[in-house]
Design a protein around this nucleic acid. Structure first.
Lengths: 222, 222
DNA sequence: GATAGTTTCATACAACTGTTTGAATTGCAA
DNA sequence: TTGCAATTCAAACAGTTGTATGAAACTATC
């Protein structure tokens, strides 16, 4: 067991390097050089390079998921067991956006690492992401309780679009800044969150509140 | 000049392999084996592996951009020089979605290649994508003409969100299918396009039509 | 202080990568 | 047919990668 010092310096050096240069450009030799440990230490402590990446990503994404569920639970308790749709969507996209954007996003290694993880798709991370569906199902269930009259298909599309907007804003913040020539303020995370929540809610509650989906000309509902 | 046969069989073999297995897992030796040509042929005809990937991607994305602009121009001519916001957004997201989704998406190599290109981020493709901003500016300009009263910031966010929803639907169609347990019909491309357009239009036209952005609590407009 | 278990270290390994080379082959014009 | 350029080919190159090895150094227990 012992000191754990080698282990933790590998983890933090790896996270910093991956955040700065991406997964494709960082080798084990870069990591051990930055961490000032021996090359063999990575395989000794983590088993393989992929398991090191997986451990980094699991740690961070578990933290995000925990924050999400905490916010959801708080909103449900505040609403007497049923959260309104705004709060649910805010709980879904808020933690991720707060983690990855914001004024000090140049500083936070963890945030930059998670952005990399969402841009570059490496096998160990892909495997973990595939297990996230159970987590999302909890939000789908909460949404169903908040909008019991809505057709279920509409709920899934709303959830999907909310995540899409949040995700792409993180992935492509640079393009949006360039395109708008700085007009879109990406440091204002709370503003962005409200913007995404507002659009999603509007998408979910537009048209007739009945079960029959009307707002859009859906050809085959399957 | 001669036959071009080697060149084209490299291109089509490469596109198929990249579409099937991604950029990370396909080596030049895989490609030349599938194309049944000599290893050195790739460097002889394309200069390098990156230039081969770039040529594949440029060909496909130029085709998509051309389709987009054709649709936009058609809509502007139909509207007497000014297209309505629906048509503009449809021209923006339609060609991409039609290219990548749809019932025969298992068949089309080109479509699967473009999905890979949007998921895995390799340097040659990233370089080309960065040059796409001028292309998007044309759509921003058309949107400005269609909604002259809207604040410019809102337009950029609307454009960004429309692309986000389209892009993420392509990238993560599998997750949406799993999450909704097949309820969301991803074969109905036209329905998806209408859905994304409707949400984007609603986001762009909601609230006061005045210049002052009101629908969302934006902290710092910068 | 000897011992057993853990951790570190330098080094080597084996495999794979994109690229280059220079000779052989081909196709075509004179 | 001859000559010349374009193309193809087998082979090797030079570099990098993640991983494995076995000895050395450490640490805590008895």
């Amino acid at each position: 067991m012992a000191s754990d010092q080698t282990r933790t310096s590998i983890l933090s050096a790896a996270e910093r390097l991956y955040a700065d240069r991406g997964f494709g450009d960082v080798t084990l030799r870069d990591i051990v050089a930055a961490a000032d440990v021996n090359l063999a230490a990575v395989n000794y402590h983590f088993g393989s390079k992929d398991e090191l990446i997986a451990e980094l990503f699991v740690t961070r994404s578990l933290a995000t998921n925990r924050e999400r569920l905490n916010e959801l639970k708080a909103a449900e308790e505040a609403g007497g067991g049923r959260a309104d749709i705004d709060s649910i969507l805010r709980a879904l996209v808020g933690p991720t956006l707060r983690g990855c954007l914001g004024p000090d996003r140049e500083r936070s290694t963890a945030a930059r690492f998670m952005i990399r993880a969402s841009i570059e798709s490496v096998p160990p991370i892909r495997r973990i992401k595939n297990r996230e569906i159970d987590h999302l199902r909890k939000f789908a269930a909460a949404m169903r309780r908040a909008l019991p009259d809505r057709d279920e298909v509409e709920l899934y599309w709303g959830l999907h679009f909310a995540l899409a907007m949040a995700h792409q804003t993180i992935r492509d913040s640079e393009r949006l800044t360039k395109l708008s020539e700085g007009l879109c303020d990406l440091d204002d995370v709370e503003g962005i969150i409200e913007r995404i929540v507002a659009v999603s809610v509007r998408a979910l509650t537009a048209g007739a509140p009945a079960k029959a989906p009307e707002p859009v000309a859906v050809r085959r509902a399957r």
